[in-house]
Design a binder for these strands. Structure first.
Length: 582
RNA sequence: GCCCUGGUAGCUCAACUGGAUAGAGCAACGGAUUUCUAAUCCGUAGGUUGUGGGUUCAAGUCCCGCCCAGGGUACCA
């Protein structure tokens, strides 16, 4: 029924899982086996993989779990890849891989047939919305999590064969432009603008903002400029376009440094023409109603939203971001028919997205999109308060990246002063930017995260430099090999514990990638490659590669090569480049 | 007030449908370098998972109460 085919070699745990489910269905026709999963054992002494699902099944049917387990084992034929299955504790099944099965998986990977993961046979289309900076404001440290997390998720989905549309929903419309237009017309410093456009625009905004706090007539004028812009005034539109161009130029510079890309950049203004129609439909369908002069949607049958109505048209007649987001969602549904739309923003917007999703479900009943808010915690300084510069300013992203590269440059120059300066600069770029990204991705996204140069650029521990160093050690071995041609081993003996542990860990790559997309948590991948780098380090210390001879040498070289490929693929999925030396 | 998060080792963080003895790193202490990059490895120590109950064969994880922290809470996004 399940021959030891290609699937077995790629992801053994899935084959075990499928066979287990079949065995259960034979015994208990009609049972729901969707929750029957095979997972890695928490402790190697129990085996390589386990399932705890039989205990749950036994409980539902009031059976003795160990007796059920015995019957299942009776039905289960996994002898081609496992030692005899053990029943343990209250009803766990423990699987221990045969070395020959492990060896077969490694051989096929070494032949380039796979890299321990299986692309999906049912590709889905997923829209991912991330980054979303505001025009006329410099990107700051608050944008980095959304940008990094969002693009990492996009790459992970793509690696597993899904179609992804990434969309940068930039803030290019809204009330701030009234003040910006006043500032532009009265106080613009062209020199400063050409030096650093976003800083100049930010200055203008702050200037007018504080002026309008003191002087009501300034605010009135700002509103007037905004109305003119919205009515299509030529001069204001031209200024607005210039502000957008200047901003996007600087965003692109940052995205270039971060290696982040988008398929679409449809800002808020793209949906302007649709906003009135959206509100009209909501009113016509009886979803929105008038309240204090605004058009409002109430969620009375919803516990957590009961006291939190959503405004879709302000009393001054203007739409707000809920309306824009509804139009955006409609556009995404119509354009790409995604099965999933993922928003990557900070946790403070949870209420907004609850409202949005609930509202969209009412507006477009029967749509089949899964709407997900993937939120993350704040970035804090080492004092535990929101991360700011010493003078209390928000930290700008460009300066942050500069400092990361500088610190990495100092480190590499100290460790390896003989490398050419140009190479040291490149290493510094890869390590510095990588360190920032990795520090951001390696924690649970929902935790607040404490920004610490020392922690992220530490040379040991779960950091980018440690992982990149592991890659350079592997590269170094292959450099020493020179022109010598590699012989692919026909099998792997895996006599040394370090070889065995490393090999088994390689096989778990696919499982981890699945977990990342299931829960939108790249830290699972970080943990995995950190463990992989650790197992490789032990292997490296204990198992000489180039000094070994014959089959052992070929096998160890292949293990190095496979580890290098998985590390590189994992790191690239996280958005990290790798280097030859460091 | 109400709603949403979170509270795990001195510090920063993990912990996979509830699963077996809660794991790493940093800091501390002890060891390893004729060697494929020591930006490394091995070891020691460190815990009543905020707190009190409950459900379960099994709870950091689920349910209820309380304490603490952060965020949100009608016309900013």
């Amino acid at each position: 029924m399940f021959p030891l085919g290609q699937a077995t070699r790629i992801v053994i745990h899935l084959v075990l899982q499928e066979k287990l489910q079949q065995a259960i269905l034979t015994l208990m026709p009609g049972a729901d086996v969707s929750s029957v999963l095979v997972r890695p054992c928490p402790e190697p002494k129990f085996g390589d993989y386990q399932t705890n699902a039989l205990m749950g099944l036994a409980k539902r049917d009031q059976l003795n779990p160990r007796e059920l387990a015995a019957q299942v084992v009776e039905q289960l034929n996994v002898a081609d890849c496992c030692e005899p299955v053990e029943i343990a504790g209250p009803g766990f099944l423990n699987f221990r891989l045969k070395t020959e099965a492990l060896s077969a998986a490694l051989v096929s990977a070494a032949n380039g047939e796979h890299l321990f993961y299986r692309a999906t046979t049912e590709p889905r289309t997923i829209v991912i919305d991330y980054s979303s900076p505001n025009v006329a404001k410099p990107m700051h440290v608050g944008h980095i999590r959304s940008t990094i997390l969002g693009y990492t998720l996009a790459r992970t989905f793509r690696l597993l064969g899904h179609r992804v549309v990434t969309d940068n929903h930039i803030g290019d419309w809204g009330t701030q432009f009234g003040k910006l237009l006043v500032g532009w017309k009265d106080h613009l410093d062209r020199d400063a603008l050409s030096q650093d456009a976003l800083a100049e625009m930010e200055r203008l905004y702050k200037l007018v903002n504080s002026a309008s706090d003191k002087d009501g007539s300034v605010l009135t004028r700002a509103r007037g400029e905004l109305v003119k812009l919205q009515d299509g005034d030529t001069e204001n539109l031209a200024i607005w376009h210039e502000m957008i161009d200047l901003s996007r130029h600087q965003f692109d510079e940052i995205y270039g440094r971060l290696g982040v890309e988008f398929d679409e950049t449809l800002g808020e203004s793209f949906y302007n023409a649709r906003l009135k129609g959206v509100v009209d439909e909501l009113i016509a369908q009886g979803i929105a109603e008038e309240s204090d002069g605004a058009q409002v949607v109430f969620f009375n049958d919803h516990k957590s939203l009961k006291k939190h109505p959503a405004i879709v048209r302000k009393s001054d007649g203007a739409a707000n971001y809920t309306t824009t987001d509804l139009a955006t969602l409609e556009h995404r549904q119509d354009s790409w028919q995604p099965s999933e739309v993922i928003y990557v923003t900070d946790g403070r917007q949870q209420l907004h997205f609850q409202q949005l999703f609930e509202l969209y479900n009412r507006w477009k009943p029967g749509h089949s999109m899964k709407l997900k808010h993937v939120w993350f915690g704040a970035i804090l300084g080492e004092d535990g308060k929101p991360f700011k510069t010493r003078s209390g300013e928000i930290v700008r992203l460009s300066g942050l990246l500069d400092e990361a590269e500088q610190r990495a440059f100092d480190a590499v120059s100290e460790k390896n002063p003989d490398l050419p300066e140009e190479e040291r600069h490149n290493i510094a770029r890869v390590v510095g930017i990588g360190a920032i990204k990795y520090a951001d991705l390696s924690g649970n996204r929902q935790s607040d995260y404490e920004f610490s140069w020392d922690n992220m650029l530490a040379l040991v521990g779960n950091t980018a430099p440690y992982l990149l160093y592991a890659v350079t050690r592997i590269r170094s071995i292959f450099r020493k090999l020179g022109d010598e041609s590699l012989t692919q081993p026909g099998s792997f003996a895996l006599d040394q514990t370090e070889e065995l542990t490393l090999a088994k860990h390689l096989l778990r790559f696919g499982l981890v990638l699945e977990q990342v997309i299931d829960e939108c948590r790249p830290n699972y991948l970080c943990n995995y490659i950190y463990e992989l780098a650790g197992y490789f380090a032990s292997f490296y210390e204990n198992c000489p590669v180039l000094q070994a001879e014959g089959d052992i040498r070929a096998q160890r070289l292949a293990l190095c090569n496979l580890t290098g490929q998985v590390l590189k693929t994992g790191l690239e999925t996280l958005g990290l480049e790798t280097t030859e030396r460091m």
